[in-house]
Amino acid sequence: MKNFLDDIIDRAIEEDASDIYIQSESPVFLRVDGRMDAAAAPPEGYEIDEATERILRVSGARAQLYDREEKDLSYARQVGSGKEKKTFRFRVNLCMTKKGVSIVMRRLKSVETNPLNLGVPGDLLRLVLESSAGGIIFIAGPTGSGKSTTLASLMAYLVATKCLNCVTIEDPIEYDIPEGVGNIIEREVGTTTLSFERALRAAMRQRPDVILVGEVRDPETASAAIQAAKTGHLVFTTIHTLMTTQVPSRIASMFPVEKQEWMVQELTDVLLAVMVQVLVPTARRLVLATEFLDTKGAATRELMVRGRHDLLRQQQRSGQIGWTLNQSLRVLVDSEEVEEADARRATNDPALFMRE
C-alpha cells in the first residue's frame, strides 16, 4: 500500500526532480531543473515521523533520530514488477530543526560511463588515463554541483575500459558502479566501515590502483589520501571550494597552524589537477561549466607552495595551465547554451566576468 512518502517520490520521478524537501509543518518542495517548486501539502493527520521511520528502516540504519542529530543515508524505491521493475535510489539527509524533522532526498540517476557525455573536459579524462604513477585529483565546487556524479563517471569509465582494482569510499554510496573489465570494491562509511580514514588505511592492504574518496572533510582523511597518492595510487576526491587555486589552503586550514605550511608542500608534491564545476540551469537542462588547473608542472607547484594565486590565475587565463570558470561560462554564453544572467549568477569572480 502506497503512503504519502511513496506518492511524493513517484511524483519526483515523474517530473524528473533532482531533490525532494519534506519538513514538519511545511509543504513539500521539489527541485526541477535547478528551480524550487511547491509540490503538495501532507494529507491531514500525516506525521512526518512516519516518513522518517520508513527511511531509517529501509536504509538499515538505527530506527530512531535523536535531538541534535543528523544522518546521511541511502534510500531505494522499487516501482513496477517483473521485467518492468525499476529501482530508484536517493541520497537522504535527516536532521532535527526547530519545526521538527527535515528530510532532503537527492535522486541518484544511473551512472554515466562516459564522462565526456556529462560535459567533463577531455583534458581531465586524458590526465586520468595517463596518470599511471599515482597522484591526487580534486573535483571542487558548491553543494549540488554534480561533483559526486563526475567522480562516479570517471570511476565507471576506468572500470569499464581498464583492468584495474578500484576502491570507492563514500558516505553514503551514491552510485552503483557497473562491473566491467576491472574490479570494483565499494565501501560505505557507517555501514561497511567506520570512517574515511579507516577505510583508506584498509585500502592500502587491498592493492588498489585507483581510490575514490567521497569527500575530504578532516585532517585524518586528508593525510591518508595524500599518503595513498604518494605511494603510487591514483586518488579522486571532492572538496568544497569555489576556485581551483584555493584547494591547498583549504586543505591546510584543517590542520594546526604550525603544520599548515608543511601540509601545502605535501599536497602539491602529489597534486595532479583541480577542477571546479558548477551546474548552470537553463530552460531545458542543467549545463556543466568548469574551471581547470593542471598542477603537474614544477613551476606551477612552486607557485602554489608560495601562495601566488594571482600568478596562477594569470596563467590559467592565458591557457598555459588550464582555464577559469569565467572563460568556460563565456563560451557557453557565446554559443547560446546558457543565458548571460544565469552565467553571472554561476561565476566565482563576478567583477572580472563583467569586464570580460
Rank of each mutant, 00 (worst) to 15 (best):
E302P: 08
H240P: 01
H240Q: 03
Q277I: 03
K296W: 05
T290D: 03
L293K: 11
Q246N: 05
Q246H: 13
A273Q: 00
E266K: 07
L312N: 02
L288G: 05
S249K: 11
Q260A: 05
D294S: 14
T282S: 04
T245Q: 11
I239G: 01
L267V: 03
R317G: 09
G322M: 08
E291D: 06
D334N: 15
M304C: 09
Q277P: 09
L267F: 01
V278I: 02
G297W: 05
L242Y: 12
A298S: 15
I239D: 01
F255D: 02
Q265I: 01
R250M: 00
R284F: 07
S328K: 08
I239L: 12
M275F: 07
T244P: 07
L325E: 00
Q246P: 06
T282Q: 00
L311G: 05
T300A: 13
E258Q: 13
R285Q: 15
R317D: 09
M275C: 11
Q320R: 15
V278E: 00
T268S: 10
Q315E: 12
V280E: 10
S318P: 04
V331Y: 04
L286N: 13
M243A: 14
H309N: 10
M275N: 09
M243E: 14
V247H: 08
Q320P: 06
T324P: 06
V274D: 04
R301P: 13
L325G: 01
E302T: 15
Q315F: 10
M243Q: 15
M254I: 04
D334F: 02
G319A: 12
Q260N: 02
S253F: 04
R313I: 14
A298N: 14
G297R: 13
V287S: 03
Q265K: 13
L271M: 08
R317I: 07
S253L: 03
V333S: 08
R330V: 02
T295G: 11
W262L: 15
M254Y: 08
G297N: 09
I239K: 06
S249W: 13
R313N: 13
R301D: 13
R330S: 02
S318F: 02
L311T: 08
V331G: 04
Q260F: 09
R250W: 15
F292Y: 15
T268E: 00
A273I: 00
M263L: 11
I239F: 11
Q265V: 10
R250V: 03
V274Q: 03
M263A: 01
Q246V: 03
H309I: 01
T244V: 14
G297A: 15
G322T: 03
A298V: 11
K296C: 15
T268D: 08
M304P: 08
E291V: 10
T295V: 06
T324Q: 01
F292C: 04
A273P: 02
L312S: 07
T237S: 14
H240G: 02
Q320Y: 15
S253T: 07
L293V: 12
R284P: 05
N326R: 04
S328F: 00
V257W: 06
A273N: 08
K259W: 02
T244Q: 13
Q260C: 09
R313L: 07
P256L: 06
T290V: 04
V274W: 11
V276C: 10
Q327A: 07
V274S: 02
L329N: 04
M263G: 09
L325M: 08
L272Q: 14
A298L: 13
V247I: 12
T237G: 08
D334A: 10
L311A: 05
I321E: 01
P281D: 10
D294I: 03
P256G: 00
T324L: 04
